[in-house]
Computed example of a mutant assay.
Amino acid sequence: MKKVLRFFLVFLLIIGIGYGIENKNSPTNDSKLQVAAATKGLNDNGDAAVKVFFSFDLDKVPMFSNQHTISISWSEGWKIEGYNLREDGIYSKNNIELLQPSDYSDSFKLKIDSNKHLNKDAFGEGYVILTSTNKEKLGQRVKSAVSVNFNYQSLVKDFKLGESTAWDNREALDVD
């Protein structure tokens, strides 16, 4: 009986130490997310287009690599044309796993791997390109918007960072 009790106490001690280490090394709500619509106008096909950049700056490098997602949603009338995240400091081919389909819906979710998508300072960035062939629908509204959420989830901590940006649809339609 004493051996079982010792084993149980050692097991609890190991779990407690692991929890403490993970909690101490996990990012907190002091992390930052920024979103900006940088490029607006018409693309080569004459469709309205906007390129939205986002960056996330975590205050600590996460211990485990696959704990987070980015979800992006946008105003009605737009569809996703492309997206990318920096991998190892550069934009590479777009092979990021989508957790939700993006076919003409108004949102999608990306899985973030901290080993690839965060640098040594826990900083990462990406972009999404939205287009619209429905110029009439865009012309009916003054502004459109994109919302980006960074979701961190681990065994000891969960938090969400959110930020959005809006732009004048006349700029995207290239109307003065």
Rank of each mutant, 00 (worst) to 15 (best):
K51E: 06
N151D: 15
F54N: 05
Y104A: 13
F108H: 06
D121Y: 14
W167V: 01
L155R: 05
S147D: 09
G82C: 02
L33F: 09
N151M: 01
K2N: 09
E97R: 11
W167F: 15
A145F: 12
A38E: 13
E136Q: 07
E87A: 13
N43K: 00
K137S: 13
V4S: 00
S164E: 04
N95Q: 00
F123Q: 11
D103H: 10
L13N: 03
L110P: 09
T133M: 05
Y19Q: 05
A172P: 12
G18P: 13
F11Y: 14
K135Q: 15
G162A: 08
N149G: 01
P62N: 09
R6Y: 14
S31M: 07
E22T: 12
T133Q: 14
D103F: 15
D44I: 11
N151K: 09
G162C: 00
S164N: 09
N95S: 02
I72C: 06
R170T: 12
V128C: 03
E125S: 12
I112T: 02
L118G: 03
T28H: 01
D174N: 15
F56I: 12
V10K: 03
D44R: 05
D113G: 00
G20I: 01
E81K: 13
L12E: 06
S26R: 04
G16C: 07
G46R: 04
E22D: 14
L33A: 06
A49M: 13
F53K: 06
G89N: 08
V142M: 04
Y83M: 03
F150N: 05
S147Y: 05
K157F: 03
I96E: 10
V128L: 08
D30R: 08
G82P: 05
G16F: 12
K2I: 13
R6C: 12
N29S: 05
T165A: 05
H117C: 07
W74Q: 11
R86V: 09
V4D: 00
R141E: 15
D121R: 12
I80Y: 01
K51A: 04
H68N: 09
V50C: 06
F159H: 04
M63Y: 09
D44F: 05
L5E: 08
V35I: 10
K79F: 11
D121K: 10
L13T: 15
Q153R: 02
I80S: 06
T133F: 05
S75A: 14
S105M: 07
T39I: 07
R141K: 15
G46K: 03
D106I: 11
F11K: 00
D174Y: 06
S65L: 02
W74D: 11
E163A: 13
E171L: 10
K160H: 09
Y127W: 13
Q153M: 03
Y83T: 08
D158H: 08
I96A: 00
S65Q: 11
S154F: 08
K137V: 14
I80T: 10
I112N: 01
D59N: 15
R86I: 04
T69Q: 11
M63N: 07
D174Q: 06
D168Q: 01
F54I: 09
A48L: 02
A48S: 10
N66T: 11
S105V: 14
M63A: 11
N45C: 00
F159D: 09
I80H: 00
T165I: 02
